[in-house]
Design a protein around this nucleic acid. Structure first.
Lengths: 148, 148
DNA sequence: TTATATGCAAAGTATTTGCATGACA
DNA sequence: TGTCATGCAAATACTTTGCATATAA
């Protein structure tokens, strides 16, 4: 069996492209995020690591990834931050948001939010710079609705 | 000086209208929220109470208020929940969001987000019920921008 | 070889819970 | 007077930090 040389590993390549050191822990975290169909909580990521690196490493890695803009953080209102790959992951690669079931946590991707106009308006009218937004939708999915 | 009888206190009245007990701690919390020009963090609310009730009371009260839909929770991305009156407070009484300065925390109110159409579309297309959203804008205010 | 990441432990902050007492309705 | 809120303390999450060691570049 051929062992993937570092240069062929997408996660490692992503790290190098962002001038971040490609360590086993970081590569493992990015692989988890790449395989996930939805944003993962720190807890899910930590459990997903084989030789579970410690919590501090997970937190620190994610903070770095966030600064480097290779992962994005989102809040589903349950007090935990969740993270997803900015590009390369499922549903990623373009600006999007999520529709989260309040009961079972099922996550759907939501495309164009059309808030760019509002952002530009806010910059113009109030002089704010670098305006961004965080947006999530919540609701009851069909299954949970049926269950009552 | 006439002492406001309970029935004339807006905060107490609001509690009674929601079938919640009108206790001094709760009334004090609602008064703080009513006087605030922006969502308050738990810490700010706790500090604002004269005979500072304890943290648990503040948390529990706010949780009840949230369930009763008389206050709304929002997240400014700093790991703390903030709360504002749903109606009666400044900028409240109508659906709105916030533009928060990433540097100094200054908060501006943002009106119509136009997301109602998307919500209806999500309900129709994916069968979700009771769809709502959480939305906040972030940026650098003019002053902070000037400071570098 | 040198800067930087990791692991561990400990500290910090945010939030919840149990229980006895006290207060609203 | 019965139900429910409060205060206190302790417990539970979640997240950060310090430091010695290990490792990527």
């Amino acid at each position: 069996m051929k062992r993937h040389p570092p240069s062929q590993d997408e996660s490692a390549a992503l790290l190098r492209a962002s001038r971040l050191r490609a360590t086993p822990a970081r590569i493992a975290i990015l692989r988890l995020l790449r395989a996930a169909r939805r944003p993962l909580s720190i807890d899910e990521i930590h459990r997903g690591l084989r030789r579970a690196g410690d919590w501090a490493t997970v937190f620190r890695s994610l903070r770095h990834f966030e600064s480097a803009r290779i992962v994005a953080r989102c809040e589903f209102g349950d007090g935990q931050s969740r993270f997803e790959l900015v590009s390369g992951g499922c549903g990623a690669g373009h600006h999007h948001h999520h529709l989260v079931c309040r009961s079972c946590g099922k996550v759907l991707h939501v495309g164009d939010c059309g808030l760019g106009d509002i952002e530009r308006d806010l910059q113009k009218r109030h002089g704010f710079a670098a305006v961004t937004h965080s947006l999530e939708f919540f609701g009851l999915c069909p299954k949970c609705r049926a269950k009552g």
